[in-house]
Design a protein around this nucleic acid. Structure first.
Lengths: 193, 193
DNA sequence: GCATAAATAGACAGACCTGTCTCACCACTT
DNA sequence: AAGTGGTGAGACAGGTCTGTCTATTTATGC
């Protein structure tokens, strides 16, 4: 076994913190827990991240990056805007049913850090805006830009609401109803073209 | 000025805790802060509520009751299901623009307490189910029961997503886009009747 | 007026929190 | 071989958390 390099160790801390934040929340997860789980010394963590805030922002930014890359890959796998949006909803449906589904980390960050000026709030908001932006770009191939903005906002709402509903224990009806509603909204716009 | 009675004092604690939980979150609000703000002794609080968990459940239950009474009053002020749903969305729009809008306390509770077995989680989930149930009953005057269930789920998702979007700083587009999407969903069902 | 109950202020325990610091160790480079 | 920088283990400070307890005062009912 090769020794982990500096970058590996930093990344290992980020991924360990991610798992803990996801399961227990941000406030409820202490530094001591993170370093114990990651198997690193406290000073190692504080060398890479000056404060817990910085670590939380890094975790959110890292996961947002992964998420957006997956989203972009998904959009390439379908031809029409409807199908692309459909694939996004399908992906959410599989996530809702996955073994370690614990709700949306970004939504939880927004809930726990209510101050819009807080860096954690802003990092979480960036992910939501990135998702909306990607859906808007998909929709602009289909409807005018201003309508695409409005529809992408509605689709984001359905996704966020579905995630919350799935969290409350009904993952299958959640994604089914959200998908049905999304397709109804798209059909209405298509018809009014 | 009359002195507050026993019930008044208990209720005063609940309402003070509500304000603090709403602004700063559940974990971030300590008992000491609550009793200082309420102007009561610590033992007074612990006499009424054996633990912080009990107080949080009481706050959520109290607010859910108020919310549902307002919802029921709202439903009486319109004749058709569409108008009733419209009034609910209007009410959310006014809330988004109110001075002390800090997002949905129940959604925040679900985010902070991820364990579905936790009493706080369950108390918050009850409010969401209550809202969905009321919308479903309204819709059952218009479409079959199974469709009403699906549509009310979608409307709940739009409301939750709109609340999150409003929280991120766009209250007016949030309620406008949510309302537009809701009406499109209702129109599609009406048409397929 | 007197007894009972409730409320007050505050100390206190024990645990946890973030963040700093020390010191020893180990791997690698020059 | 000596130095350098990252790391581990853990003590530590200073603060906060929930929840308990005591001692005193206030309010209420009979």
């Amino acid at each position: 076994m090769t020794e982990p390099t500096k970058i590996d160790k930093r990344q290992h801390i980020v991924e360990t913190a991610y798992e803990l934040f996801k399961r227990a929340g941000f406030h409820a997860t202490g530094i001591d827990r993170i370093i114990a789980e990651a198997g690193v010394a406290k000073m190692t963590m504080y060398r890479h991240f000056p404060s817990k805030d910085d670590l939380m922002v890094e975790v959110l930014t890292y996961r947002a990056g992964r998420f957006e890359r997956q989203l972009d890959r998904l959009a390439e796998q379908a031809a029409t805007p409807e199908r692309k949006i459909g694939l996004i909803f399908d992906r959410y449906g599989r996530w809702f049913n996955s073994a370690d589904f614990h709700g949306c980390l970004f939504a939880h960050a927004l809930a726990e850090f209510g101050d819009p000026a807080h860096p954690v709030f802003q990092a979480a908001a960036r992910q939501k805006n990135g998702l909306k932006r990607r859906m808007r770009l998909i929709l602009e191939e289909m409807i005018p830009a201003d309508e695409a903005d409005s529809v992408s906002a509605a689709l984001l709402m359905l996704i966020e609401g579905a995630t919350l509903t799935a969290r409350m224990g009904q993952p299958d009806p959640a994604i089914r109803d959200a998908r049905k509603a999304a397709m109804a909204i798209l059909a209405a716009r298509r018809r009014s073209q």
